[in-house]
Amino acid sequence: MSELPQTTVSIHQVSDELDERTLSDVRQLAKDSLNVDGNPPLSDQTLVALAADDASENIITLLAEVGEGTESVLAGIAVVVREAADQPWVLEVVVHPDHRKTGIGRALLTKLSELIDLPQAQAWAHGDHEAAKKLASRIGMSRVRELYRMRREGTDFLEEAPVDRRISVRSFRVGEDEPSWLESNSQAFVHHPEQGSLTLSDLEARMAEDWFDPSGFFLAFNAEQKLVAYHWTKIHQSSGESIRPTGEVYVVGVVPEAQGMGLGRSLTTTGINYLLEQGVDAVILYVDAENEAAVKLYRSLGFTLWDADIMYGPQPID
Rank of each mutant, 00 (worst) to 15 (best):
L115K: 13
I235A: 05
F172S: 08
I77N: 03
E209V: 06
F189G: 02
G260N: 11
D117N: 15
D210E: 15
L276W: 03
S215N: 14
G264Q: 10
H191C: 00
V249D: 07
E257S: 15
K101R: 15
F212W: 09
W232E: 12
V169Y: 01
F218V: 08
A125Y: 02
G154C: 03
W89I: 06
E176Y: 06
V93P: 00
L42H: 07
Q28M: 13
M311G: 02
S197R: 14
A258E: 09
E292F: 12
S142T: 14
P256A: 00
L108M: 04
P314A: 11
G140Y: 01
L62S: 10
E183V: 13
T61R: 09
R244S: 13
L91E: 01
I77D: 04
T233K: 01
P5R: 14
E160I: 14
R173T: 11
G127S: 06
S171C: 07
A282S: 14
L198C: 05
A55S: 11
D202H: 09
A136I: 05
W211F: 09
H236D: 15
E204A: 11
E130W: 09
L297S: 04
V255K: 01
L29M: 07
M261Q: 15
P97M: 06
L198W: 07
E290R: 12
P245K: 07
P97T: 06
V190H: 07
S171R: 05
S43T: 10
N58I: 02
V287Y: 02
E204F: 07
L23M: 14
P214W: 10
D117W: 06
I235F: 04
G175C: 04
L147K: 01
G69E: 05
A220W: 00
A294C: 04
V287G: 03
V95Q: 05
S242A: 12
V163R: 08
L301W: 11
L63G: 13
F189Y: 08
E146R: 10
G313S: 12
D98T: 14
V9Q: 03
E277C: 12
D16K: 12
I284A: 05
V251E: 01
S184F: 08
T268Y: 09
R151F: 04
H12Q: 07
A131K: 13
I167T: 09
V255E: 06
G302H: 03
A258Y: 04
E71G: 02
G313P: 06
V169N: 02
T268M: 11
R106D: 10
A75R: 06
E153L: 15
E194A: 14
S15E: 10
Q259L: 06
G216W: 00
V9H: 03
Q87K: 14
R100G: 01
Q225C: 06
A293T: 09
G127E: 05
A52L: 09
I310K: 03
L50W: 05
V251R: 01
E159I: 12
S197T: 15
D128P: 02
N291Q: 08
